[in-house]
Design a binder for these strands. Structure first.
Lengths: 190, 190, 190, 190
DNA sequence: CATGAATGAGAATTCATTCAT
DNA sequence: TATGAATGAATTCTCATTCAT
């Protein structure tokens, strides 16, 4: 029903399957079951769906975090977070980068920060609480810590899934090393 | 003289200046001072320069690291590394991401790992030495630590330079937080 | 009005005038007064107009046969048929062969038979009637006879018009020999 | 050893396999195992091999005719001729037409007649002999008869092998109808 | 005679975008 | 709002041909 959302859904599906370059507006509108011109009623150009896609994906992660990370010890929470980021990257592999790149070709580069903001804030809050609870060092700057953490998790996940067929044991080791890294960097349990 | 290298140099120059989309093969060969068809003697398509560019850029970072990170304490070395990554990202801003994206559209995705390998190894060696010197925790896995570190540094730098005009003070704070993060994560000085 | 037909007409005109190789899609669309991309709404590639052209040409011959071959003795009809084939080949000289060749590079080779079918059938009917009228041998297989006749007429016409400047007397002799050949092969007047 | 011949052989092989358009000079020289420029020592352009190929193919038919059509009754000889033409067309399917088309794009169209001449003459001689032997009508013009016969045989063969998968029984029927057609057209056995 | 790296003109094709309905 | 036929600018890639060695 909501054509705007149908465009976004189809765009994601096709970009994931065939890449941005290979996907034409025609592909998208066909998949969405709407007319060719209708696309331009909702988005002003091919690239201008990108922010919407980015938003959708960040919200996706947020939703998972909110539902899966709950009330447990900070350590457990970090473990879950790493899982969420790994799973998400696996599912959407190239798309994040693709979207990001598409973004840089728009004039809306600045909005990237805005779109990520809720995610940064959510993690920041999590850190703040752990600090209040005395689980991590009181001198931690949650602002930078949240950003560095997210960057580290995303990079790690990307590295892992670049391997054509990463073995599960390798993934598990990497994940566990990453959890240690994060906790240690926050002086957890000292 | 070496036409292959001239193509790579011109491609980097133009991709940086105008983006990949806006740069045509014709632009590149003109800049390189060679014939249109000559491009295809060395690269099979527009995108297939990407791995060569990636290689060039990784080597670039490596060269800087080798020349700038020397003989000092691990802490100083980490500070210098962060500087190198920040400077490099600033200089080549979009190119890194562009190259990465271009890569995924080639069939050579697997080579990414190979191209990064020397960088990973170099950092790994640095960590190993710090461990031998007793500067960081003896339990550190240099394999994962190097990869996570590099990911964190790249992500941080990208986040910083996304702001249209990041203030120097913000950059300095982020950089310093990052150094702390890395050192703490390795139990430096405990 | 009908853009498809305008494309076909222009293609025939230009192919005849300058050959297939020398004719570009741009030439065709300019001549047809339509946009460059419009061509591809109706035909999927440069070569894929060929079947349409072939159809047009076969229909052309059919139309001439239907209007010029009427109600007379079989002998007169054969003479007229030969004339039609000769005239037609003269007018469209290379085009027939070009079309044929273009065809073999499409995947629609099979349609050749379909396109020729009405022509075969028309001649077949003519033979059947002559047989009923007792003008030719009752044992004649009109199926094969029609096909062999058409082949002979086309080949003869092509041979004749290969000479840069065939003398009219030569053409007349060839034509007359051909009529004799056909009639005799059918035991006409025995 | 003879590079000229190696070029012709490779050209035939590749033209048959992939068509003229799809075959590049580079393909040919690679297949022939010679240098790129060497081609132009023997032929002045891409198309200028065509006459050589045509010559080769006509000679091929002639050689078969000479070895297979020997001393028997005219009827047997015609049967054998038809077989040779059918076999040859099956083997070289499109090539004849392709070569012919390639020819028309050269300025040497006139030579086609010259190249076919020996074939025409050979058949003409065969007819003349049959006439001397009283096997066919004394009024037969061997000049036109030979040309019409060859045309009919080639056309028939082409028609037959256009069917994707002609059944053997159909081919046999067509062939036999063709032999009858030819013999009757010459008043054989009257 | 032989080579093959280099050339560059040229064309087919694609596809984002528009606009009359 | 919605459509989809029409557009045409723009670009990659091909390949016959050349020429210095």
């Amino acid at each position: 029903m909501d054509k705007r959302q149908r465009i976004i859904d189809s765009a994601i599906k096709l970009y994931l399957r065939q890449g941005i370059e290979k996907t034409t507006i025609t592909d998208i509108v066909k998949d969405a079951g709407i007319g060719q011109g209708t696309y331009y009623l909702y988005f002003s150009s091919k690239l201008s769906v990108m922010p919407a896609i980015a938003e959708y994906m960040v919200n996706n992660v947020l939703r998972r975090l909110e539902s899966e990370v709950r009330d447990r010890s900070f350590k457990r929470n970090v473990e879950t977070m790493v899982s969420v980021f790994f799973d998400n990257t696996e599912e959407y592999k190239e798309l994040t980068k693709l979207v990001y790149t598409g973004f840089t070709q728009t004039e809306e580069v600045g909005r990237w920060e805005t779109i990520y903001a809720p995610l940064y804030e959510w993690v920041q809050t999590l850190i703040d609480r752990a600090r209040s609870d005395g689980e991590i060092s009181p001198r931690t700057s949650s602002f930078f810590a949240s950003r560095i953490m997210i960057g580290a998790m995303e990079s790690a996940a990307e590295q892992v899934y670049l391997f054509d067929d990463p073995e599960q044991s390798f993934i598990d080791e990497y994940r566990s090393a990453l959890v240690d890294h994060i906790l240690t960097s926050l002086n957890y349990g000292k």
